[in-house]
């Protein structure tokens, strides 16, 4: 027991200082995500303003008020990229969604702060979102398999994917430059 505790204390001491530059649980900065998603370091940006109808739609998807006046997005070469925070159990998870032609091209977890549900940050989970769009009811057009013990984080990811697709649809109807921007 003493050896175990000594080893544990040593590990904690070694890592306690850690890398103070990055937030714990941050795997991808927003800038790196956008550059990878849109193949440009300085993508064009715009916002979707949430009128009453869109706010209600967002609240239906999230199960709570969206807590935003507008949703910022970045775009280039026909793609849009969105970054949202959504709480799984207790802490916000920062997720990025890339959309092209009305379907998800890439889904990434940028920062994961929850104590359970770590699985959703990895590709074996997030690749389930590739190619998903909206069905006629405005919901994801395929099911996302859950992970035992990570149900709340999986739900948060589903909500964000759904929200990004709905906002992308609005953005493309109001911003004609999305298809042509480089």
């Amino acid at each position: 027991m003493r050896r175990f505790l000594a080893g544990l204390l040593l590990l904690v001491a070694i890592h306690a200082g850690g890398d103070a530059r990055a937030e714990a649980g941050e795997y991808l900065t927003r800038e790196a995500f956008l550059e990878a998603a849109l193949a440009t370091a300085e993508p064009a940006s715009d916002v979707v303003w949430l009128d009453e109808a869109l706010r209600n739609r967002a609240a239906d998807i999230l199960g709570h008020d969206p807590g935003m006046l507008r949703a910022r997005y970045w775009y280039a070469a026909g793609r849009t990229a969105w970054v949202f925070d959504e709480i799984g159990k207790e802490r916000p998870i920062t997720m990025g969604v890339v959309i092209e032609n009305g379907t998800i091209r890439d889904f990434r977890v940028l920062t994961f702060r929850e104590s359970r549900g770590w699985e959703i940050r990895y590709a074996f989970f997030t690749r389930q979102f590739d190619g998903l769009g909206l069905d006629r009811d405005g919901e994801l057009d395929a099911t996302i398999d859950s992970i035992s013990g990570a149900t709340l984080s999986v739900r948060a990811a589903r909500r964000v994917a759904n929200l990004a697709l709905v906002f992308d649809d609005v953005a493309r109807r109001t911003n004609t430059e999305i298809a042509s921007a480089r």
């Binding site: 935003m68 006046l69 507008r70 916000p92």
Partner: peptide
Amino acid sequence: GDYVESLSVSTAVESATHIG
């Protein structure tokens, strides 16, 4: 918009104490 959203973000993201 930035200011109003920063108020909601600070509530949602930066709260250090969690209750459930």
